[in-house]
Computed example of a mutant assay.
Amino acid sequence: MMTIGVVGAGVMGADIALLCAAHGMRVVLKDVDQAVLDKFAVELPQKLRGYKMMGCTFTRTAAQMLELVQATLDYAPLADVDWIIESAPENVELKQQVYAELARVCRADTYYAVNTSCIPITKLAAQMPDPSRVLGAHFMNPVPLKKAVEVVRGFHTSDASIEAAKGLLKQLGKNAIVVKDFPGFVANRLSHLFMNEAAFLVQDGVAKPAEIDAIFREGYGHKMGPLETADLIGLDTVLHSLDVLYQHYQDPKFRCCPLLRQMVDAGLHGKKSGRGFYDYNS
């Protein structure tokens, strides 16, 4: 039985842990906040019911899945995992600290999958003892419902690591799409332009959020509009990713919409805070 270490139990990390446990894998779920780990256990039954209603064919119960998950505040339990899927917040310095700890405790043959939306894989892999075993695995949100995973080949990533990632993702019911290591990769270089420009449309009074999203759903056939997606991801996360893209490319097309920055400053972070472009409290 494969053992997966998931570092970071936030929105993405919790769903990745759920997905791995649903497919019978042992999971070591690491976070810095006990309340976040407790939240994962409390919310798992409800999230599992919701995903099943949306078409996921998971056969394990929440109780069976929780038996496969070891929640921890320490790095030590990650010493014997086959894979690390790192899903810490989108902050380069924070991720570098995480990888310094992982390099200290993990086995030499552990593979590392960086679940990032914009940060270059090569930059993080450079500090690892064997950067050939580090790659990007950009899961889409919500994780159980999205088929595609961007697998990002860093400068040193080996063919063997890419093939191992494809095998892991196949076991999880995912389709690995291999791309090169440029900030934002494919998905976020496109999606963040959509979300940012949609925020500009709201700021300029061209249309309301519901109208903009309806055009994307009903006109383009997207399942969600850009502002619904931004609220789901978290406006603070979208803002930070735009700043990362702007920093790396120095291209004004990634300049964050002032309204989006103001909303984040005001604490309107989307669904997780109860209010973003939409109100989730009513």
Results as ranks from 00 to 15, higher is better:
T3C: 11
T3R: 14
V7Q: 03
V11D: 00
M12V: 13
D15T: 02
A22P: 08
A22Y: 07
H23E: 07
V28R: 13
V32I: 14
V36Y: 04
L37E: 02
D38Y: 05
A41L: 01
E43C: 00
L44M: 01
Y51L: 04
K52T: 00
K52P: 00
G55L: 08
C56G: 02
A62D: 08
A63L: 05
M65T: 03
L66I: 05
L68H: 03
Q70H: 10
A71S: 06
A71V: 01
D74K: 07
P77F: 06
L78Q: 07
A79G: 01
A79F: 01
D82P: 13
I85M: 13
E86V: 14
E86P: 13
A88D: 12
P89T: 07
P89H: 11
V92Q: 14
E93I: 07
L94W: 08
V98I: 15
V98E: 08
V98F: 05
E101H: 15
E101G: 02
L102D: 08
A103Y: 03
V105Y: 12
V105A: 12
V105H: 11
D109I: 09
C118S: 15
K123W: 10
L124Q: 09
A126W: 05
P129W: 03
P129T: 06
P129Y: 05
D130A: 07
D130M: 01
P131S: 03
P131L: 07
S132W: 04
G136M: 08
F139Y: 15
F139E: 11
K146I: 14
K147M: 13
A148L: 15
V149C: 05
V151R: 10
R153W: 09
H156T: 13
T157G: 04
S158H: 11
S158Y: 10
D159E: 15
A160H: 14
I162G: 02
K166S: 02
G167Y: 06
G173P: 00
N175T: 09
V178S: 04
V179A: 00
F182D: 05
P183N: 08
N188W: 06
A198T: 09
A199E: 01
V202D: 07
D213F: 07
D213V: 05
A214T: 11
F216T: 00
E218L: 13
E218W: 03
K223F: 14
G225F: 11
A230C: 13
G234E: 03
G234P: 02
L235T: 02
D236A: 02
L239P: 03
D243L: 13
D243Y: 09
Y246P: 06
Y249S: 10
L259P: 09
L260R: 03
L260T: 07
Q262M: 11
G270W: 08
K272H: 06
R275V: 05
G276S: 10
Y278S: 04
Y280G: 09
S282G: 13
